[in-house]
C-alpha cells in the first residue's frame, strides 16, 4: 500500500518546526509503524536528506521510549497499543497520516518527533519510591500482602512512562502517570510509611513542572497503552486530601 505522510520536522529545541510531506510506498501490512518509518528513513538518507528522528528502543511495547500522535491520537488508533506495536494492517492504501510529537509545555520538542520527558523522572524523584537501604530488608514473606492489593499494585505499576496521557489530556496533565505511581506504592503495606508525604511531594513536583491540572476528562485513559485507569487519579486525590487534613505531612 501507499500512504501519504505529513510529518512534523524540527531541527532542535526552540527552532521553528513545520510539516513535511512524504510518500511511503510499498508498505507491507506486516510492518510495524516504526518499521514503516525506518523504510521511509532509508529512502530519505539515500536521497541525501536527514531521517525523521523518533525515540524507540525495545519495540516490544514495554520500555516506553516510543510515542507520537498519529492523526490526533497518541500511539495511533489501536487501544492498549504503543506505536512500536502498531502494525500497518490497521491502515488502508491511500490513507493520509498526520504525525506530530507530544505537545505539552513541560515536554519541549528536542527534534522532530522526540520530546523531553524528563519531568516524569523528576516526579518520581520527588517521592515515587519506598526508602529501604540495600541489605536491610526483612525476610520477604514476613509481611503478607493480600492478593487483591498485590494485583492492584501490579495493575498500576504497569505504566511505562510513555507520556501519552499527557499528550492526550486537553490540559496536558500528567495526573494519570502520577496517580499510577501513587496507587502502586500506596496499595502495598511497604508503601504506607511514606504514603502521605509521597503524594504531596509528587503532586507539588507535577505542578512545578508545568503540567496542567486534571479536570477528569478521561482522554488519558483512552490513550494509555497500559490500561492505567483514571480511578488511580481518584485515589491520588483522596490521598492528597487525607494528607492535608489528617496527616502531619499536610
Amino acid at each position: 500500500m501507499k500512504l501519504k505522510l505529513h510529518v512534523w520536522r524540527q531541527n532542535g529545541p526552540g527552532n521553528e518546526g513545520r510539516f513535511e510531506d512524504y510518500v511511503a510506498e510499498n508498505v507491507s501490512e506486516h510492518m510495524s509503524f516504526l518499521e514503516m518509518l525506518d523504510v521511509v528513513n532509508e529512502q530519505l538518507i539515500a536521497r541525501g536528506d536527514e531521517p525523521i528522528a523518533f525515540d524507540h528502543d525495545c519495540r516490544e511495547g514495554i520500555c516506553g521510549s516510543c510515542g507520537f500522535m498519529i492523526n490526533g491520537e497518541p500511539h495511533g488508533p489501536l487501544p492498549s497499543t504503543t506505536v512500536c506495536q502498531l502494525h500497518m494492517r490497521n491502515y488502508r492504501d491511500g490513507d493520509e497520516l498526520w504525525i506530530e510529537p507530544w505537545r505539552a509545555t513541560a515536554f519541549p520538542v528536542i527534534r522532530d518527533l522526540i520530546v523531553d520527558r524528563s519531568p516524569l523522572d523528576r516526579i518520581v524523584q520527588a517521592g515515587g519510591y519506598i526508602s529501604v537501604r540495600t541489605g536491610s530488608a526483612p525476610e520477604a514473606n514476613n509481611i503478607a500482602v493480600p492478593k487483591a492489593n498485590a494485583d492492584l499494585a501490579m495493575d498500576a505499576a504497569e505504566c511505562i512512562a510513555c507520556g501519552a496521557c499527557v499528550a492526550a489530556c486537553p490540559n496536558a496533565s500528567a495526573m494519570l502517570f502520577t496517580g499510577a505511581k501513587v496507587t502502586h506504592l500506596g496499595a502495598l503495606p511497604q508503601g504506607q510509611p511514606e504514603r502521605y508525604t509521597r503524594v504531596v511531594e509528587m503532586v507539588t513536583m507535577h505542578d512545578d513542572e508545568g503540567f496542567g491540572h486534571c479536570t477528569n476528562h478521561g482522554a488519558c485513559q483512552t490513550a494509555c497503552p497500559k490500561n492505567i485507569k483514571v480511578d488511580y487519579i481518584g485515589r491520588l486525590n483522596a490521598d492528597l486530601r487525607k494528607a492535608k487534613f489528617r496527616h502531619p505531612a499536610g
Binding site: Y129, I130, A137, A140, I143, M154, A157, L188
Partner: peptide, 10 residues
C-alpha cells in the same frame, strides 16, 4: 527477593 519486596516490587 527481600530487597525487591521491601521496595514495593509487586
Amino acid at each position: 527477593i527481600d530487597q525487591c519486596v521491601a521496595q514495593g516490587v509487586p
